[in-house]
């Protein structure tokens, strides 16, 4: 147990479940306490949010929840890393935005929203970032076909005589 793990366990009890795989420490956080946990980690020195990304567990063996959101944190002084995961479910997967803690989450949360449709509550500007703005699906969800629904070819053609 590292110091931050002990502190989290003391403060949040069983709202944080830990798991270690090849020196990667992951922490599964209950959605209700998520923002508090993140604030606590920031206070403990995790000052860099490296990445925010989503997972769709549809058809995943023995998965209880539909979506996961993973945050990778780094303590730039000690070099420690932490992977924080929250689980979400349909019909409206939503998680509090960590914009108030790490400003750098801005575009990463927008991308996760764009690809998975996960709503980050409190994000200042939650718009699509990669797909066209009028796009209606969330392409990295497992129930969205890999080749899309024909959107990519649904454009007018320029004929040679159009010039």
């Amino acid at each position: 147990m590292t110091a931050w793990q002990t502190k989290l366990t003391e403060t949040f009890g069983d709202a944080c479940k830990f798991e270690t795989f090849r020196d990667n420490i992951r922490c599964d956080v209950r959605t209700e306490r998520f923002l508090e946990v993140m604030k606590n980690l920031r206070a403990q020195g995790f000052d860099l949010l490296l990445d925010v990304t989503g997972i769709d567990y549809l058809h995943y063996p023995k998965a209880a929840d539909r979506y996961g959101v993973v945050y990778s944190l780094v303590n730039t002084e000690s070099g420690e890393r932490a992977y924080i995961k929250v689980r979400l479910n349909d019909p409206d997967p939503a998680v509090p935005s960590v914009y108030s803690i790490w400003k750098g989450c801005d575009w990463m949360e927008r991308e996760t929203y764009d690809m998975f449709g996960i709503v980050f509550e409190g994000h200042p500007d939650l718009r699509r970032i990669l797909m066209p703005e009028e796009f209606t699906s969330f392409p990295l969800r497992k129930d969205y076909p890999l080749r899309g629904r024909g959107e990519r070819h649904n454009f007018p053609t320029v004929l040679r005589s159009d010039g």
Partner: peptide, 13 residues
């Protein structure tokens, strides 16, 4: 998806 394409609606379902 069968919406006839133009540049504003082409990716709509």
């Amino acid at each position: 998806m069968m919406v006839p394409g133009d540049f504003t609606t082409a990716t709509r379902l």
